[in-house]
Amino acid sequence: MELNKEARTIELLKEKFEDQILLIESPYNFLTVTLKADKIIEVIQFIYSNSETQYQYLTTLCGIHYPDQNQIAVMYQLHNLPSNHRIRLKIFLPIENPTTPTLTTIFAAANWLERETYDFYGVIFSGHPNLKRILNVDDMLIFPMRKEFPLEDQRREDKNDALFGR
């Protein structure tokens, strides 16, 4: 039953957004679909309102920085509560201009989650009603969760721990 529902979701997505899908996988039994960035809101709107999928609960949303590819991923995790199915959608944005439309038009919960993603990764959610920093101080100049910012000041000399690689 579970597989059927997931297979059906993939089928519907393929039917409607064939050209958008880059990769479908299922790590640890969690359906994960990687998409092109340009139509993400349409895809979410589709699986939100389609009577067969109905992913109407936004579990979470976050950014991931891949320094090697110079990309920032945005991960959306949706849940269909009545039939208990989850889906994870991922898009990849170039680090020079990480811009994607906001999800607040569908989910009110996306408001702060997107602000958090902006705060830590600098992803611009266009159309967001109040896109400003949320957990960090307002005058911070960097996006601290990006991998180029080490946790400790690398220039410190009093803590030279060459063996275990600080």
Binding site: T59, T60, C62, I64, H65, M75, Q77, A108, A109, N111, W112, L113, E116
Partner: peptide
């Protein structure tokens, strides 16, 4: 729902750990 979204690249630490904190999400209402 307290969620842990963990990406591991095979090293000794997580590559990315996202914490789904229920408070953070519902307090915005």
């Amino acid at each position: 729902e307290l969620g842990f979204y963990l990406i591991s690249d095979g090293g000794r630490t997580p590559f990315r750990l996202h914490l789904r904190r229920p408070c953070f999400i519902y307090y915005q209402a």
